[in-house]
């Protein structure tokens, strides 16, 4: 499977992704085996509020990058249902124009309720696509949850998409993505009110000059009239060409990744131990009957499970 994926066989690539995403036995061995051959792809994160036309924008620029000769991978992340663990993943609807394009591979991914783990899983999928010869990988998320923000923040380049008519869409940006954006795109600019959004964002950026090193550009686009798309492509391809060694080679980033893998692994180890060890039944009863409290029980369990 690994060999076939290396040759960019679509089906092998898809299967490899499932294997790792499902954390099937041996997934880590796969990642270990391919790690050395990754790190050259350019990762573009795209986020923004629902209705901002992210997917259409992604579809548009992925196609143009594809036409330039780049092999593209797209990861479209949508939330899982917290109740059933299932999901309806619908981003492909907006990408139908490129769904059979030979240079483009699209993969929908559910958050699967993995606290922090989504970030790692997405990183793994990026790496597999990288290994399978994708020059550029685009990750698209709905910019609402902390998880999704973390996912795009692990990209080389972050595109934040907003649009006129999104109500308080600019207000929503303030909530934390502001700092990680490399470019602000006001999409659907054929609608009324685009200029207002541009000036609101610019004003906000001006005020935050102390916290960001470089003020990111704010541009208007429309996937319908194609206004601004050329400008956007110009900025994007300049970045792609200039892009040097990726996050792979930055100490801080590698440290963060090891920590993140460790965290996820530790949590599942602890969960496993606890469930094989009476599933906390006894301890919970103590709390419920007023004989103990959640803090003491947690301390007790850490001692017992992790031996700390």
């Amino acid at each position: 499977m690994i060999e076939a994926a290396r040759k960019s066989n679509e089906r092998a690539l898809a299967k490899l992704i499932s294997h790792v995403e499902d954390r099937k036995p041996g997934w880590k061995d796969i990642m270990k085996a391919i790690y050395a051959e990754t790190g050259r792809t350019c990762v573009i994160g795209v986020t923004g509020s629902p209705g901002s036309g992210k997917s259409s924008l992604v579809s548009e620029f992925a196609k143009q990058l594809g036409d330039m000769g780049y092999a593209i991978g797209i990861i479209a992340v949508d939330p899982s249902s917290p109740f059933s663990g299932g999901a309806v993943l619908g981003d492909r609807i907006r990408m139908r124009d490129i769904s059979t394009y030979k240079n483009i591979f699209i993969r929908s991914m559910a958050t699967r309720g993995m606290l922090g783990g989504l970030c790692q899983a997405a990183r793994d999928v990026v790496r597999i696509m990288d290994f399978a010869g994708r020059d550029i990988v685009i990750i698209e998320t709905v910019g609402v949850g902390q998880d999704e923000i973390e996912v795009v923040s692990a990209s080389d380049y972050v595109v934040l998409v907003t649009y006129p008519g999104g109500g308080d869409s600019v207000q929503a940006i303030k909530a934390g993505v502001m700092e990680i954006a490399d470019i602000f795109v006001v999409n659907k600019c054929d609608r009324d009110g685009a200029d207002v959004i541009v000036s609101e964002i610019s004003a906000m950026l001006d005020l935050s000059t102390e916290t960001v090193e470089k003020i990111p550009p704010v541009i208007k686009t429309s996937t319908f009239t194609k206004e601004g798309i050329d400008k956007f492509m110009e900025i994007l391809s300049e970045f792609i060409q200039k892009k040097e060694k990726g996050l792979h080679f930055q100490e801080e980033h590698v440290r963060q990744e090891v920590m993140s893998i460790l965290e996820t692994e530790m949590v599942s180890l602890i969960k496993e131990k606890i469930s094989s060890d009476g599933n906390m039944e006894k301890e919970l009863k103590l709390i419920l009957s007023g004989k103990s409290d959640p803090y003491s029980v947690a301390d007790e369990l850490i001692k017992r499970v992790a031996g700390i």
Binding site: A14, S81, F83, G86, A87, G90, S99, R107, S108
Partner: peptide, 25 residues
């Protein structure tokens, strides 16, 4: 979805080629 499956919904007017390609990817 409520049965816990991950459902990829591709919307109206899909060609057989698009469906096959989506299924593989």
């Amino acid at each position: 979805r409520d049965e816990g499956f991950e459902v990829i919904y591709t919307g109206l007017r899909q060609t057989p080629e698009q469906i096959v390609s989506a299924a593989v990817q």
